[in-house]
Nucleic acid binder design. Structure first.
Lengths: 225, 225
DNA sequence: TGTGGATAAAAAATCGATTATCGTGTCTAG
DNA sequence: CTAGACACGATAATCGATTTTTTATCCACA
């Protein structure tokens, strides 16, 4: 994979961090797999130091597990973990949405509308899935952006990344996909109408349904525990 | 400062991480200060690589700010930030306490009692403040431990560290200190009585009062913004 | 057959040195 | 004078090699 070299004040370390984060969220690594540092080194064509710094950051962020003297591992996919992440997403994202609806101004309304539109118009071709994911993430971020708490946003982002590890493993369920997409539209409506209560409930349902989808993948739905 | 050279499966990197984390939380660095890497290297007697890895982790954790090509800085103390941290602490810690009261078993009750007792009996001498802080942190962690969510605990821990940067700068207010200590006792009572509602409210008040204390330090109380 | 222990191979962590970038002060053209 | 180019010392980032630790392998011996 070619990594764009040379781009302003970007350090190798942060470049490889971004790339790895994407790849981890998108499930390009086997869950539970041990990270072969020297393999990554070759694969991404970076040196050891920036690579290790990136891995350290990813571990602190929760996308890797660091074990002293025995390197890094990709966290396993675990039913309980998914339950936890989903539950917290519901708590925090609903909280944030409610606050955003209180504080958001006209500019926010415009951005929400724009983000929703871009998402709706996005190319659904399988090879463009990354692009769709990008827009989807941005839509959700835009929605809660003016919640007034930097830390809340930070936690939500983190949970999103965790959640997406599961969801992106899961097979598509066209039926549910349609519902989820429709909910995006309604979320916008409710947000613009400043219906905090309604938006909150819808967001809760939205995440619950996404959870159902995420559960479908990675054989966590089965009784394998 | 001598760092204990423990054997076992501890890496230099994680050792220096723990030490720096402590020192950052305890305000041993000037807020806003630029981290002089080579100075730390000497001061803590470690190599560059493990030191940089630790700094990267701390930045991902939120105790440092990383700016590409210009190293690391200690975050400034900022009134809005403290408001945010306190607000989130109230939301999350109350949530966790309520859940812990639901799920906690007899073993938990014992541990809460023990932790509270150790805290109460702790030496209050100024040179033993680190020890008290240790016990205080452990008490709060024990209280919410069985909340059922690993991520919730993780976030709370992170917010605690942020909060303590402010609180430990602040001057003692013996009056308030007495009230806060008394609240610890009552929190235990309410927890054992499984009075979720009451405990929640008290925890909220507890954090509000701590906030008042934290605000006192670092000249954030003044209208300097 | 299985267990313990020595040892070799592999991987992780760390070091010492090099390279790239920033910040600052100085100089010069306009 | 002043804006901009340039050079240089300081600092951050990265590299290549070395040390330390873990993991795998093999063999003696009960």
């Amino acid at each position: 994979m070619a990594i764009p070299k040379r781009k302003g004040r970007i350090t190798t370390s942060s470049r490889i961090y971004d790339t790895l984060r994407q790849d981890l969220v998108n499930g390009r690594f086997e869950a539970g797999e041990k990270v072969a540092i020297s393999a990554l080194k070759q694969q991404y064509e970076v040196g050891l130091s920036p690579l290790r710094e990136a891995l350290n950051r990813l571990a602190a962020y929760g996308l890797l597990i660091q074990e002293n003297q025995r390197g890094f591992r990709v966290p396993r996919l675990d039913r309980e973990e998914l339950d936890d992440v989903s539950g917290m997403r519901r708590e925090l994202e609903c909280m944030a949405l409610e606050r955003a609806i209180h504080h958001g101004d006209a500019e926010w309304e415009s951005e929400v509308l724009a983000a929703a539109h871009r998402l709706k118009r996005a190319d659904l071709a399988p090879e463009k899935v990354d692009e769709w994911e990008q827009l989807h993430g941005r839509f959700h971020r835009t929605l809660v952006a003016p919640c007034g708490s930097v830390w809340l946003l930070r936690f939500i982002e983190q949970l999103h990344d965790q959640f997406d590890r599961y969801r992106r493993m899961a097979p598509e369920i066209p039926e549910t996909r349609r519902v989820l997409d429709a909910q995006h539209e309604i979320l916008v409506e409710l947000a613009l109408k400043r219906d905090a209560r309604g938006a909150r409930e819808l967001m809760d349902d939205h995440i619950r349904r996404s959870y159902e989808v995420a559960l479908g993948g990675s054989s966590l739905g089965r009784v394998n525990r």
